[in-house]
Design a binder for these strands. Sequence first.
RNA 1: UGGGGUGUCGCCAAGUGGAUCAAGGCACGGGACUUUGACUCCCGCAUUCGGAGGUUCGAAUCCUCCCACCCCAGCCA
Length: 555
Amino acid sequence: MPEPTEPKDFIRTIVEQDLRSNKHGGRVHTRFPPEPNGYLHIGHAKAICIDFGVAADYGGLTNLRFDDTNPSKEDMEYVESMKRDIHWLGFDWGDREYYASDYFEHLYAYAVQLIKMGKAYVCDLSPNEMREYRGTASEPGRESPYRNRSVEENLDLFARMRAGEFDEGSRTLRAKIDMASPNFLMRDPVIYRILKVPHQRLGDQWCIYPMYDFTHCLSDSLEGITHSLCSLEFENNRELYDWYLETLDVFRSHQYEFSRLFLSYTTVRKRRLLPLIQAGIASGWDDPRMPTLAGLRRRGYTPESIRAFCDAIGVSKANSLIDVAMLEHFVRQDLDNRAPRVMGVLRPLKVIIDNYPEGQVEQMTAYHHPSYPERGTRQVPFSRELWIEREDFMENPPSKFFRLGPGREVRLRYAYFVTCVGVDKDANGEVTALHCTYDPATRGGDAPDGRKVRGTIHWVSAESAVPAEVRLYDRLFKVENPDEGDPLENVNLESRTVLEGCYVEPSLADAPAGSSYQFERQGYFCVDPDSTPGRPVFNQTVGLRDTWAKIAGQG
RNA sequence: UGGGGUGUCGCCAAGUGGAUCAAGGCACGGGACUUUGACUCCCGCAUUCGGAGGUUCGAAUCCUCCCACCCCAGCCA
């Protein structure tokens, strides 16, 4: 009878309460408010999933709003990349694309209103003086000597600030709240500062810009945002958020905070990632090892997998460090279901089938996806000379090793059983080629006599193999929490391995950039834009779980 | 140091009208299946809920005190 209710997070619980009490007339309206000062990353993905997800769950809307109040740090270039990334992730804001700068005139009027109410004043303290006046955690701050200017004088001074009469940094407009508040943000916070920098959208229309706390709550209010969701570090700001809305007596939006996403072995901090790009360790913000959405996309992560991940980690107020293995699990899960299977040899070893007719080529039928036969098949050419994976052969294999070794028989996936009958070596004793014989009766991979074989290995016909480059990746940092310590010291310099002499099956010759495949027995790979016709370049998204590696690792 | 927060299995995270409710996922271990040592499928995995007291027949859930960690003193967001 009582249906097992899906556990909800605390935010959805609040939204449901508000819905039940008809707090906003049944309306749920959220917003995603990035500052256009960089690229969106996995941490933003969590916020996006929450902002859009909560609204969608209750039939509400989500606005995209660029929080562009600091032109010295922002650029329109980021606006475009952010829009593309959000769409790629799978969310849409309809025609509700807003900018805090849309509200500058309105915000200015609110500031004038505060002045008229005696709740704001122009302050001439320098940045250093202001810091001194602010006090400390144990001592209250002191009131600015300019705190009690008349409304008329404040109005005049503020108008002249806007007119550009004063130097940058010489004056600010401040809210008159409480210099003794235990919350620093309430000790007469700055509302407007002078910044003689042209705005990326408005040009030189303004030389004073509103601060975040003032802008954000009023933008929310103006847009009718019911639930303003943000991360934990803004908990202290909520008191100010509420003060502005209450004092100006405008629509009351409410702010709720959830914990940011932290991933092990990962940092999303620009100050820590940029040095890696500058040092040439990473190729750019879309390097496949980057935690940016652009990087994850190039790496082969799917939007679905990122959304499933965000869904799984939940929403709470507890600081947490999530194991990257969790993220990897969700790409594997998604790609396992959708990626077509192909064969590719990363570290090739030549195999010659001694008893196979020279010059003969057979087409072997292989499933695009064995779990879904309805997805069809493809033909894979087979011939006398093949490439197999070097690590699928051992000259002195332990008993647990199911692959090829002298005298051992294995199945070539979708082809024949072969037995190793000889090993060619060079002067250094390095294995250069294997000689095998095949059993013609096992075509397709089944032995009519019921004979079993422990190992099945993948291969590519040498005569039609397509040369390819494969880039293998490992975590970018060697330490679990790269937010601490020297970023350049903690980087994993072996996080990228470029393999140039790989061979893949012919069907991959012109695979389109961005498409994902499972190289059987190896992992998921995504075609990189660096590919050229006839020579694809693959990025390893994530490897398959490798039980053998664990067994071998134990000795 | 003042204020604001958080502490449930190795990592996330449900569970707060008190009484077989300590969900689920990841990771890990074992087994089955297998033309991917993949996938899938079984099984195992906190007598215990930051700690100590207290109230009670009974507390992760209520009370008291304590401890740890995170955030705040940008004219950043």
